[in-house]
Amino acid sequence: MSSEVEIFGAYFPGWLLSAIAGIILAACTKMVLAKLGLHKQLVMPVLVYLCLAFLWAALCWMIFFD
């Protein structure tokens, strides 16, 4: 299976799309945690959200491109 995706006639690498999806999903996770009031409990939020973005990106990669 190819790791490139055609969007509007241009080919994008799968890792790029997975990274974008990971960032978007991490932002959505941040909103959910803020809504629940759990974001105040985080010790190092920048590191937590960076790891969440990586986690979501890796999951998207494994689901759609592996």
Rank of each mutant, 00 (worst) to 15 (best):
S2Q: 05
S2D: 10
S2Y: 00
S3T: 14
S3F: 15
I7T: 04
F8Q: 10
F12L: 09
F12R: 05
F12V: 13
P13I: 13
P13R: 04
P13A: 12
G14L: 01
W15F: 15
L17I: 07
L17E: 09
A19T: 14
A19N: 07
I24K: 11
A26N: 03
A27L: 04
A27N: 10
T29D: 12
M31W: 10
V32P: 00
A34Q: 05
K35W: 02
L36I: 02
L36Y: 00
G37F: 06
L38F: 03
K40N: 13
K40G: 14
Q41K: 08
Q41C: 05
V43A: 11
V46A: 15
L47Y: 05
L47W: 02
V48E: 12
V48G: 08
Y49V: 01
C51I: 11
C51D: 09
C51T: 06
C51F: 14
F54C: 12
L55Q: 02
L55R: 00
W56D: 12
W56L: 05
A57P: 01
A57R: 00
A58Q: 04
L59F: 00
L59A: 13
C60E: 14
W61M: 11
F64Q: 07
F65S: 03
D66I: 06
D66T: 06
D66K: 04
